[in-house]
Amino acid sequence: MTGKERIARRIAREFRDGFYVNLGIGLPTMIAGYIAAGIDVMFQSENGMLGVGGPPSAEQEDPDLINAGKQTVTEIPGCSFFGSEESFAMIRGGHMDMSILGAMQVDEHGNLANWTIPGKMVKGMGGAMDLVAGARRVIVAMEHQTKEGASRILKQCTLPLTGQSVVHDIVTELCWIHVTPEGLVLTEVAEGFDAAAVQARTEAKLIVSPELRAMTVAAGS
């Protein structure tokens, strides 16, 4: 199991029947592959769709049917389409149970940075700022460290923010961290690691939960 797969499988366990969820581009889209039987989740794509299905077959491919990552998708029965203004009204209006997205940096205050590196990257925030400001629960799904081995979970974000005090939980291949007003609480650690090993790879101060437990993941598909 790769680190990314472990993250996707762990977050899949948070889904409850009837949830409306927006999955960010990249790692978060993998989560859709690990939903338990009997749990119906409606995925929203902010370009204007509820009820996003998996990728199409070559014959089903339709240029008018894409997700927010501009990838071709399919419809599930009961799906609906709407304009961008309505899509973001449902996001901003607090109707999404969960928004799961990637990050470049997260900090002790629940601040999130995931949209720009000044002077290097001009892409844009897309819908990320609206999602983190509007979803009932914001979960960051990311690899614990950068490819260079630097911590992504910092005392204070150094990159321009996507949202201020917006993150509720951080899930990496090593652990689950819950963001509280008191700071970052380590609630779960992956097999083969302990709290000290996670802290050694984390710049931010972690508060170890008295109920610290092993991170268990959903079964593979």
């Binding site: 304009g83 973001f88 819908g127």
Partner: peptide, 8 residues
């Protein structure tokens, strides 16, 4: 600008 803010 944020996509939802643009739309609104």
């Amino acid at each position: 600008i944020p996509q939802g803010t643009l739309a609104e």
